[in-house]
Amino acid sequence: MVRYFLSRLLIAIPTLLAVITLSFFLVRAAPGNPFDSEKPLPPTIRANLDAKYGLDKPVFEQFTNYVGGLVKFSKEEGSWLPTVTLDFGPSYQYKDRTVTYFIQAGFPVSLKLGLMAIAIALVIGVGAGSLAALRQNTWMDYTVMGFSMTGITVPNFVVGPILQLIVISILSATAVQLVPITGWGDSWKQAIMPVFVLALPQIAYIARQTRGSMIEVLRSNYIRTARAKGVPERTMIIRHALKAALLPIVSYLGPAVAAITTGSVVVEKIFRIPGIGTHFVNGALNRDYTMVMGVVIFFGALIIIANLIVDVLYGLLDPRVRAA
């Protein structure tokens, strides 16, 4: 297991390198420049800026400089191992702040939002999906499947503004106080809307997945064996069916983390939440190269780690994988 874990960590390095390379050149391929503004800068100032940030050098040299500067090893007196620091460089837009500063400030907010969304997606999704499977082809099944189809097809940048609109225009001003439509951190109520919008497609997907796998498991031979043993229905579902039915959900958690992270970029912007996503969108709009790169690398690493955790979790849950 330890060996497997370490080899997976090693494989993560080339993956991250590919992510860095791709996003580096893609960002630079986009038209525009970090220092473009409505009023063009005088050429000398512009040349000075480019020289300061190394933008006057050929793109490939910029790339090697960037990658070279990412990881810094420093060795302190008396310590065995060198300390590793990640340096995403300065933000081109906020000249006195580093990208690391923004990630450090935004990540706790984004993490809280994402974790709440995943937790809610799991609870509601698994619950609704199991219910649909156990009451297959009844109105309950059709309702759950209908809602989840909507949840999957309607994107969050539509759901978010529509919900905001409903709260403001159709409901009264008190509704806005009960369910605030923007902001973060002043009251827990501010989390209701963004968490819901972020979780909605995940709820929908997890519900469909749970229903499908639950139906399959309930038809399996070992469930028939459990019935033949006289195991009561409820025990049968909890002890014999649920674990097998949830395994596909566990393996979906990796992609779910990715979906939630990318979803949060939009949702944070819609609900004015000071997370990483907001900085990422602003960075992209302003061609803030280092900001975009920093967030992409950070998210990439996050998703790789999430998938790794999921694989380990899967191994712990399925005895057949554990042995292999």
Binding site: N221, Y222, R224, T225, A226, K243, A244, L317, P319
Partner: peptide
């Protein structure tokens, strides 16, 4: 049952 490979709960 007929199929002992799948009649026991693998988990």
């Amino acid at each position: 049952f007929q199929d002992p490979m799948t009649s026991l709960n693998p988990y």
